[in-house]
Structures are given as structure tokens and as C-alpha cells.
């Protein structure tokens, strides 16, 4: 199957099932990283940084970037642009269709007991899904399991400078909560160059 058709279908599914905003698309993107060769987990983490530092909805940023990467692999820059367009349209299409339907009976939808019941379990489940994506991010950015498997030395699992940087940034982001994420991303980029991460 053509990569472009697949991109559209995969992002359509993401748009249909990612409930609760931008980060809810993460578990779907990590599944795609597993299933296809369009992008890997490290690139996905870069995509999150780019999305946090540029305007617009995070989900759209992700679709555009992922679509570009996958299309570019297949057919250069033109393919990248086509892939980005198809992934983005795929992602937003279910929203448009569903909202146009829901808009007709907005009040009844909001006060519907079944909807509220579903959300009682959906909220913790989506949080669990995002937490497991978070687990993957921590695994790839703070630990290096392949190095440990090669040397057998447990100490090699930990990327110590990264773990220290994590602790510092975590503390700083909880002290200065009002600071824009882009500040921490920029600081981490400088630290990465200085520490040769």
C-alpha cells in the first residue's frame, strides 16, 4: 500500500480515537513509530520539542512533521509536503465530521449521562496511555539499554549527565511554573551542546 494512503489512514484513526487534546495523540504516534519506518522514537521526542516551541495545536504539528518525515523518505521534498498535507487532513477530518454532527444537539450531548460515565473511565485511561508514552521518552532520553547489553556493566545503563539535567530542569519547571516551555527547551539545548550529550 502506498505510504501516502497509509499516512492518511493512520492519522485519521488517530484523530478519531485520540480524545482529550494534543498529548492524547502521543500513544498513537508511538504505536506508529513501532509499526512503520516513518520515524523512530528519538525523532518523535524531537517532534514534541518542536511542537512545544511553535504556535498551533500540538496534534497538528505532530501530524505535519510525521507526514513530512515519512513522505520525504519516500519521495524527497515534494513527497514530504504531500505526506504532511495528507497526515494533517487525515487527523482533522474526524473532528470536523463529529463536531458538525454534535453541534446539532450540543446541550443534550454535554448533559448526557452515558457520555459522562464514559469519561469517568476515559480520563484515567488516557492519562495512563500518555504516562506510558512518557515512560518511553524517559527510557530513550535518560537510559541506554543497548550499551548495557553490549558491556554487561549495569552502570552503563544510566546516562548520568542527562539524569542530572532532568532533575535540574524538573525542579526549575516546578519552581518557575509560569515560564514558557520554550525556555526550558532552549536551556536544555545549550546544556546538551556544553555537556556533549
Amino acid at each position: 500500500m502506498s505510504v501516502f494512503f497509509l499516512l492518511f489512514i493512520e492519522f485519521f484513526k488517530t484523530g478519531l480515537f485520540a480524545i482529550g487534546g494534543g498529548l492524547a495523540t502521543l500513544p498513537f504516534l508511538y504505536e506508529m513509530a513501532d509499526k512503520y519506518t516513518w520515524f523512530d522514537e528519538a525523532i518523535l521526542t524531537d517532534m514534541i520539542a518542536i511542537s512545544e516551541s511553535t504556535p498551533g495545536p500540538i496534534g497538528v504539528n505532530m501530524a505535519t512533521y510525521a507526514g513530512y518525515s515519512a513522505g520525504h523518505m519516500q519521495a524527497g521534498i515534494g513527497g514530504g509536503i504531500l505526506g504532511a498535507a495528507l497526515a494533517t487532513i487525515g487527523l482533522i477530518m474526524p473532528s470536523i465530521i463529529i463536531i458538525l454532527i454534535v453541534a446539532r444537539f450540543l446541550k443534550r450531548f454535554r448533559d448526557n449521562k452515558l457520555v459522562n460515565d464514559a469519561f469517568f473511565m476515559l480520563r484515567p485511561a488516557v492519562t495512563g496511555l500518555i504516562a506510558s508514552a512518557c515512560f518511553t521518552i524517559i527510557q530513550t532520553s535518560l537510559f541506554q539499554i543497548p550499551a548495557f547489553q553490549a558491556s554487561g556493566n549495569l552502570w552503563d545503563v544510566f546516562i548520568l549527565p542527562s539524569i542530572i539535567l532532568f532533575a535540574v530542569l524538573f525542579a526549575a519547571s516546578n519552581i518557575w511554573k509560569k515560564l514558557h516551555p520554550i525556555v526550558f527547551i532552549a536551556a536544555a539545548a545549550v546544556a546538551g551542546i556544553l555537556l556533549k550529550l
Binding site: A42, D46, T140, S162, A189, L197
Partner: peptide, 13 residues
């Protein structure tokens, strides 16, 4: 820089 940025992303998420 990207390796450092990944650590920041872990914090944000």
C-alpha cells in the same frame, strides 16, 4: 542540542 532537548521534553511530559 537535540539530545539535551529530549531531556527537556521528558520533563515537560
Amino acid at each position: 542540542a537535540l539530545a539535551g532537548i529530549r531531556v527537556a521534553v521528558a520533563v515537560l511530559v
